[in-house]
Design a protein around this nucleic acid. Structure first.
Lengths: 129, 129
DNA sequence: CTAATGCTTCCAGTAACTGGAAGGTCAAGG
DNA sequence: CCTTGACCTTCCAGTTACTGGAAGCATTAG
C-alpha cells in the first residue's frame, strides 16, 4: 500500500511516516517501480505499534528498543517491564510537578479579581522571590 | 553585576541568561568597558520574574506578554488574569491526558509478570489496534 | 609572569517533527 | 491526446528553548 494509506491506517501524518522511514525506525519493505514507498501489513503493524508507544510518551530511542523487543519475542518480558516501569516513574514525577503548578496557578487566578485595578496578585506572586 | 552572578541569583544557567538577552526578552541595561554584560537589580528582577513564569509553564512569547504587563502597572489585571486562566486550562488538559496515560501504563506494568517467559501483556497491548 | 577563570561571539546540535518548493507519476475526463 | 488534479519523491529550512563547544579577549590570584 502507498504511504498515505499506511499513514491513515496507522493514525499518523504522512510526513511522520516518511520521517520514521528516514531515521530507520520503520522502513517500508520495498519501493514500487516509480520509487513510491510500498508498505505491507507487517510494516503497518510496526507503525501502529510505534504510534501507540509514542502515545504512551515513549521517546524515539525507547520506541526503537521496544520495537526490537517486539520483533524478538524470545527476549525476556522483564526487559519490557523494566523499560515501562522506568517510564512510569518519570510520568508520575511529571504528574506531581504539573499538579503543584496547577494548584498554584489556580490559586493565583482565583485571587486575582480580574477587574480594572492595576494591582494583581498574579504579578505580585510572580515577582516575589 | 556580571552575568554569572545575575544568573546565580536568578536561578538560571548563564547560557540561558545570554539567550534571553539575545532574543530581547531581558537585556542587560549596559555593557562594561570590556564589553561584559552588566546587570542591575531591575534586570535581575526581570530575570527572576521570567524564571518564575517559565517554572509556571509559560512559553517565551507568553513571558514577553507578562513582562510587558509587569512593566506597565497601569494595565488592567484582567489582562493578566485572562492570560493565566488560558494557561490554567491548558495545564488541566495536560493533567487529564497524563493521568490517563499513567493509569494505563501502571495497569500494564502490574499485569506484566517480569519473569523470563517471552509473552508480555505490555507488548500485547501496544500491538493491539 | 603565568595559570585559571570568566567573559565574548558564533556555529552547530538537540527532539520529533512540520512546512514548503520543485518536480516525477498516475488515473480520469473532455 | 492532453490536461487537471491528486498523489508521490527529495531536499532545505524552521520550530522551542535552550545547550555544547571552539576561538579568543579580560581579569585576577599566586
Amino acid at each position: 500500500m502507498q504511504i498515505s494509506e499506511a499513514a491513515r491506517r496507522a493514525g499518523l501524518p504522512v510526513k511522520t511516516v516518511r520521517y520514521y522511514a528516514d531515521i530507520g525506525l520503520v522502513r517500508p519493505p520495498a519501493r514500487t517501480d516509480s520509487n513510491y514507498r510500498d508498505y505491507d501489513s507487517a510494516a503497518l503493524a510496526k507503525l501502529v505499534f510505534v504510534r501507540r508507544a509514542r502515545d504512551f510518551g515513549f521517546s524515539i530511542p525507547e520506541c526503537r528498543e521496544l520495537l526490537a523487543l517486539y520483533e524478538d519475542r524470545d527476549r525476556s518480558s522483564a526487559d519490557v517491564r523494566a523499560l515501562a516501569a522506568a517510564h512510569l516513574t518519570e510520568i508520575e514525577e511529571k504528574q506531581r510537578q504539573l499538579a503543584a503548578l496547577r494548584d498554584e496557578l489556580a490559586h493565583l487566578v482565583n485571587a486575582c479579581q480580574g477587574n480594572d485595578r492595576p494591582d494583581c496578585p498574579i504579578l505580585d506572586r510572580l515577582e516575589a522571590e
